[in-house]
Structure formats: structure tokens, C-alpha cells
Design a binder for these strands. Structure first.
Length: 670
RNA sequence: GCUCCCGUAGCUCAGUUGGAUAGAGCAACAGCCUUCUAAGCUGUGGGUCGCACGUUCAAGUCGUGCCGGGGGUACCA
């Protein structure tokens, strides 16, 4: 029985008692974790609320402690409950029957390294993340998006959902056009020359996306000096959108190569996708036209004949509720007939929810090392067999908070077309940006003015080439980790050492980006991001590695966890053990390890992966202390050793599983 | 102007949706490797939770008003 199941049983007891004894209906029964283990395993501050409700219903004034006493006797009889205390002004503190909980609960579910498998008929949801413009390499800000999205996706799977992961490719936007302008007009390259360049870059171990990063910056500078070049941009953009011409073909190569590079970068961090929906298909398969027709016939949008927005199709949007002066119309179709991003996104989101009435064509794009295949949309003929994509019950869009205004419009637009699904079907998983400290920007070689230096942070900018590139940071992390591994395990093979260094680098970066809550601006600091000490992924991994090495030795001795569990069940002496101070800290380790499911559910409910990160760190820290205080292998008391083994096993299972849910592996050794 | 977010220890951040004595990491200082891995552990110092009212058994958390910082408010995305 899991902790959550016990909690649910106890809630029900509280509910029925409130009804039968006091005639009060409780809608929700709040359960909380007491601040200290000595205060119990689950607490119900419900007596305060009941006192108020009873007074409202009957006029009778009851003391919360009096009410708590009634609940106490009922709760004491419940399954798995050892005893219940009334504390403070009326807290109900429930203490579990520890030996029973340990011997029954620790059943070795295959949690570590795999998620709870979702059934084929489970609810399907879509998570869109990454969505980097395919015209340059990814920087650390993009990685925050991807790590958040990927971790959230893992969390959803852990709660039993079926998840489809999409990475939207804006292959026909101005950003791609800018790099294409650079290739054609600054470097006089045609498609053949670019392919040649790509091959040359590969030969010297450089990547196409890095080259584009620099070129993109260069184009930005040139625009400032040449109006003529700016005109070229419009021309190129038009050709790309139209398709079926050499410029579009060139752009397609550039965008696709960048997508490949970005996928490689993300794969280094254990981030994979199921589908890459492309903007070119939204256009060429007339997704927008379909959405446009629906919006017109429903009267959601109208054609503006006068004023600033004359000639545009607009959607009314109340920017600020209750202030009709500020009502504005959002343009979906420009006066030149082209569709804005917001318009295209409405069509895309409708497809994601399965309410557009059109589908993409698909072809396989890339096969990951583990065999997983990522598909891409195409305007060409469909692959004969392809998975069913789209049609999610809920869609999660991982997009930074600077875009919450357009996201709001998209959501309202979709809801206007499909009121039965409504706004709740589409969730904007927003997060604050990753910025640079002025010092970090200078470290990257950017000249800072005095004014810049006074700023709390400097926004990264792909256009200016200002940012920490993801691959550079991962490289640095791997190099640092390798040096540490080298100093500890010099005799291991290069392959093993590199593998461990890689796992540590991934752990460090993913944890670093997950420990902040979504609405905290991360001011990037090299020292902090490169650290392997303190609150880091490495710390959590180290804790799990130490735990595993205990079980390796235990295995050599031929002692199993199941034997230990039986020994606990057979020995009432364990009760006495837990009454001592030494026992109390063992128990708090056990109960903390049991809270993983709760942490994952909370993270899913609040759309906040940081909750899981904090739990994982707390668990790792607790285990390090436990490890320090108890020498498990040499513990002479058989029963105590059994308890220590079972508790350590619970801890390593939760720890491994928590890390896996964050996309972090536990190394063999470190 | 309007709107959203942030303000908690020297620094960077948590704070279980209103609960028990406000917690971590970093930095500083003092200790701990003959013991399952010291990427670890222990201890010390460090707080007017931006300010002021209010709501109630209870406020870092909710409301109102200020102060300070940032984002958004495009026929960009």
C-alpha cells in the first residue's frame, strides 16, 4: 500500500466522521506533512475548519481539540495506523504502524529506470517544447525550455498519461530567411556551395548550426547598414513561403540541417521527440484556410475596413477585462494577405486538439540510438504506415512568458471555435527567461556599457549572437566531470570514464535548470552552472551511487532485501527500535522515500517540475546523512540491519526513479 | 498609461495554495577519511519575509495602497 493510498483512506474516515458525528459535509480534507517526523507521518488540520462549520450549521460552539478527540478515536482504528495524537490547538497527527508499513510497503515495484507504464487506452496529451527557430544552434535559454518540457512529459507519463512530444519547426519564418539572405547575398553561395561548406565543416569537426549562429549575427549587422539587404529579406521570405523554387529549396536545406543539429544537441541531454510539425505544411496543406473558414462562419473574426487596421482580418480581444477603452483587435491576416504567427498557431493548436478536420502527411525523419523514431510532417505523399499523431485531450505548450499575450489570444481563439473544449484544453506552460549576468556577458566577450553593467541581467539574443551555446556548455561540463572521474578512477577504460562524465554533465545541467521554479528568471552564472557540489544533480547521483554500492556488497554476501523484510515482520523488537532516537531518524528516511509519488503528483498538478527537483535533493541529502550515521553492512544486530537494508532500498529506489523522471541517470560509479 | 511577474540570510533560491519554532545551497569560520565512495558529513554566525494598513483562531502566503526591479502591450515570433 502506498502512502497516497493510506492518505486517501484516512481522508475518507475524516469525511464520514464529520458527517456522522457532526452532521457536516467536508468537500476537501487537507492532509499535510508535519514539519518534523516526531510530529507524525500525516497531519490533518481539519478540526479548526470543522469548528467553524459546526458553528455555522448549528450555532454550537465546539473546541477544536474536542472535535479532534472524536476524530482521533476513529482514525486510530484505520488500516496501517499505529497511533494518533492531538497536538497544539487541534492538529491530528497520525503515526503509522512502522514494522507493518516497512515489511508490507517495500515490495520491489520496478520503479527505477522506467516509468509507470501507461496503458494504450490511457488519456493522450500533447506536449510541445523546444521549438527553436531552425537557423542557428540552441543556447541555454532554449535548453531551459526543452528540459522543462521533457521533464514535464516524463512526469505526465509517471502519472499514467499517454504523451506525444512535438517540436514545432518554424522553417518558413523570417529567422530562417535572414540566414538564407546571408548565404545568398553576403556569401554568394548557392545550394551546392552550402552543401559543400557543410561537408567541409563536418570534416574539421565543426557544426552547421554554429556556422549559422555567426552568419545570422553578421546579417543582423549588415541590415543596419543596408536598406537594400532588408528588401532582400522580404523577397526571400516570400519565396520561402511560396515554395517550389530554388530559394525555398535552399532554405529547406538550411532549416533541415539546423533541425538535425538541434536534435543532436538535445539528444545529448536525453531529450527526444515523437513528431516535428513544420510550418511549411501548415501553409501548404491549407490548415490556416480551414481554421479561417471556421472563424469566419462563427463570426469570431471580421474584416476591418477602416482605421489603422484597414484591410486586415482581426479578432477582437479584450486586453484588460473591465476596461473597454483598451479593447484591441488582434490581427490574424495582414493587409497584404499573409497570415500572422498567431493565426498559424490557432490552426496548429486546433489540429493538436483534433478539431481542425485536416491532418498532415508524415515521413520518418530520424532514428535515435535506442531505436525510437521521430517523424516529420511533409506535403509530399504520406508514408504508407505512420502512427496516429495529434488529437490530444489536453495540450501543453512550453513557451516562455514573454509570449503569454499571444498565447492568450491563441487560446481564446481556439476556445471561441470549440467552446465545448474551452480554454482549459490548452495550457501554456510558461517560464521566465534565462538571462546573463553582466559579468557572464563580458566573459563571453561582449562589450558592456556602464549602463549595461548596472542592469540586474542582460537578455540573451540569438540575433545579436549573445548567449551561451548549449553544446559549448555541455562540452565544458563533460570536460570538468571527466577530470574528476579521472582523479578517482584512473584505472577505468576511456569509454567508461567518458560515459560517466557524460552522465554527470547531463545531471548537472538538467538539475540546474530544474531547481528554479518556472517564474524565476535564471541569471546565468558559469560558476554555479558548472558546480558539482551542493544542490546539484551530481549530489543526487552520488547519493544513489553510494546506495547502490551497499547493495552490490550485500549481494556478494548473499543477503537479500526480501529476507530482511521477512525478518522485520517476524520481529516485534523492531517496535522498540523505532521508539529510540536512533530509530526515529531511520523512520524519517523511510517515510521521506515513500513520498515520491506524492511529489510527482504535486508536480503534475501544479505544472511545476521544480517540486520534483526539490524533493529529489531533499531525499539525496537525507540519504547521505543516513549513510553517514548507520553502517549497514557491519551492523551486528540482525533485526536492525534488516530495517536499515529495507529503508536503504526504499531510498535508492525512490532516488533512482525521481532522477529518471528528471531524465538523469545514475552512474555505475563516480 | 494599462497589464503580468518578482522583492525572503552577504549572494542565488525554496517555502506543501492560510497552518506548528521561516528553510536549503553558495560564500565565511571550526571540525570529521584505519570504518558500505570525503563530488560527502557535523557545527557556528547570519532574518523588520520591500513598506503600511486590513481580513481571522492563524499571514512570507489572501485583499487594498504605496516603493523598487523586470516582462508584455507589433501587419515579429
Amino acid at each position: 500500500m502506498t502512502l497516497i493510498e493510506i492518505q486517501e483512506i484516512l481522508r475518507e474516515v475524516v469525511r464520514t466522521t464529520a458527517k456522522n458525528e457532526f452532521g457536516v459535509e467536508l468537500k476537501q480534507v487537507a492532509a499535510e506533512t508535519p514539519p518534523k517526523t516526531e510530529l507524525g507521518d500525516i497531519a490533518f488540520p481539519v478540526a479548526f475548519e470543522l469548528a467553524k462549520l459546526i458553528k455555522q450549521a448549528t450555532g454550537e460552539k465546539k473546541n477544536p481539540r474536542e472535535i479532534a478527540e472524536v476524530l482521533r478515536s476513529k482514525l486510530s482504528a484505520a488500516q496501517m495506523v499505529g497511533r494518533v495524537e492531538v497536538a497544539g490547538a487541534g492538529y491530528l497527527n497520525v503515526f503509522f504502524d512502522r514494522p507493518t508499513f516497512l515489511s508490507a510497503n517495500a515490495a520491489a515495484e520496478p520503479l527505477p529506470n522506467e516509468f509507470r507504464s501507461s496503458q494504450p487506452d490511457a488519456i493522450k496529451v500533447c506536449v510541445e517544447h523546444t521549438s527553436v527557430n531552425p537557423n542557428k544552434s540552441a543556447h541555454i535559454g532554449h535548453v531551459r525550455n526543452s528540459v522543462l518540457g521533457d521533464t514535464f512529459q516524463r512526469i505526465l507519463k509517471a502519472t499514467g498519461k499517454r504523451v506525444e512530444i512535438q517540436n514545432y519547426i518554424d522553417n518558413t519564418g523570417v529567422q530562417v530567411a535572414d540566414v538564407v539572405v546571408g548565404f545568398i547575398y553576403l556569401e554568394n553561395k548557392d545550394l551546392a556551395a552550402i552543401k559543400d561548406l557543410d561537408a567541409q565543416l563536418k570534416a574539421v569537426g565543426k557544426t552547421f548550426d554554429y556556422y549559422c549562429w555567426d552568419l545570422y549575427t553578421k546579417v543582423g549587422v549588415e541590415y543596419q547598414m543596408s536598406e537594400e539587404l532588408k528588401l532582400k529579406r522580404a523577397e526571400v521570405l516570400h519565396l520561402i513561403e511560396e515554395g517550389g523554387n530554388p530559394t525555398a529549396e535552399l532554405a529547406d536545406f538550411v532549416a533541415t540541417r539546423n533541425v538535425e543539429c538541434i536534435l543532436d544537441t538535445m539528444a545529448r541531454l536525453s531529450i527526444q521527440y515523437d513528431l516535428l510539425p513544420r510550418e511549411s505544411e501548415i501553409l501548404h496543406l491549407h490548415f490556416w484556410d480551414r481554421a479561417f473558414e471556421q472563424m469566419k462562419s462563427l463570426g469570431v473574426i471580421h474584416y476591418e475596413t477602416e482605421g489603422k487596421q484597414a484591410g486586415c482580418w482581426v479578432m477582437p480581444f479584450e486586453e484588460h477585462a473591465g476596461n473597454d477603452e483598451n479593447e484591441t483587435d488582434k490581427i490574424l491576416v495582414r493587409s497584404n494577405g499573409t497570415v500572422t504567427y498567431t493565426g498559424k498557431d490557432i490552426a496548429y493548436q486546433m489540429w493538436k486538439l483534433g478539431i481542425l478536420g485536416l491532418d498532415f502527411n508524415y515521413r520518418p525523419f530520424h532514428k535515435y540510438k535506442d531505436g525510437h523514431e521521430v517523424w516529420i510532417t511533409t506535403s509530399d505523399s504520406n508514408a504508407s504506415v505512420h502512427p496516429a499523431f495529434g488529437g490530444g485531450e489536453t495540450i501543453y505548450n512550453v513557451i516562455d512568458s514573454r509570449q503569454s499575450y499571444p498565447q492568450d489570444i491563441v487560446r481564446k481563439g481556439v476556445a471561441a471555435i470549440s467552446p465545448e473544449r474551452g480554454e482549459k484544453a490548452s495550457i501554456h506552460l510558461s517560464y521566465e527567461m534565462v538571462a546573463l549576468s553582466p559579468a557572464a556577458a563580458e566573459e563571453l566577450g561582449f562589450a558592456m556599457s556602464d549602463e549595461d553593467r548596472k542592469r540586474p541581467f542582460i537578455e540573451m539574443s540569438g540575433r545579436k549572437g549573445l548567449g551561451v551555446k548549449a553544446d559549448d556548455l555541455i562540452d565544458r561540463l563533460e570536460a570538468n566531470a571527466l577530470a574528476e572521474v579521472e582523479s578517482r578512477h584512473a584505472d577505468s577504460s576511456e569509454e567508461v570514464k567518458n560515459g560517466i562524465a557524460h552522465q554527470l554533465a547531463v545531471g548537472a545541467l538538467r538539475y540546474f535548470l530544474l531547481k528554479f521554479t518556472r517564474n524565476t528568471v535564471i541569471v546565468f552564472d558559469f560558476k554555479e552552472a558548472l558546480s558539482f557540489e551542493g544542490e546539484t544533480g551530481c549530489f543526487c547521483q552520488y547519493s544513489a551511487v553510494r546506495a547502490n554500492s551497499i547493495f552490490r556488497k550485500l549481494d556478494e554476501k548473499g543477503e537479500t532485501v526480501d529476507q530482511c523484510r521477512e525478518r522485520i515482520a517476524e520481529n516485534a523488537a523492531t517496535l522498540e527500535l523505532f521508539a529510540t532516537d536512533a530509530g526515529s531518524d531511520i523512520w524519517s528516511m523511510a517515510i521521506l522515500a515513500s513520498r515520491l509519488e506524492e511529489a510527482i503528483e504535486q508536480a503534475a498538478k501544479q505544472n511545476e517540475p521544480a517540486i520534483l527537483a526539490k524533493y529529489t535533493f531533499t531525499l539525496a541529502k537525507a540519504f547521505n546523512l543516513f549513510y553517514h550515521n548507520h553502517k549497514i553492512l557491519i551492523e551486528p544486530d540482525e533485526v536492525k540491519r534488516a530495517v536499515l537494508v529495507v529503508v536503504a532500498d526504499m531510498a535508492r529506489r525512490s532516488l533512482t526513479s525521481a532522477l529518471a523522471t528528471m531524465g538523469i541517470e545514475v552512474p555505475e560509479k563516480m
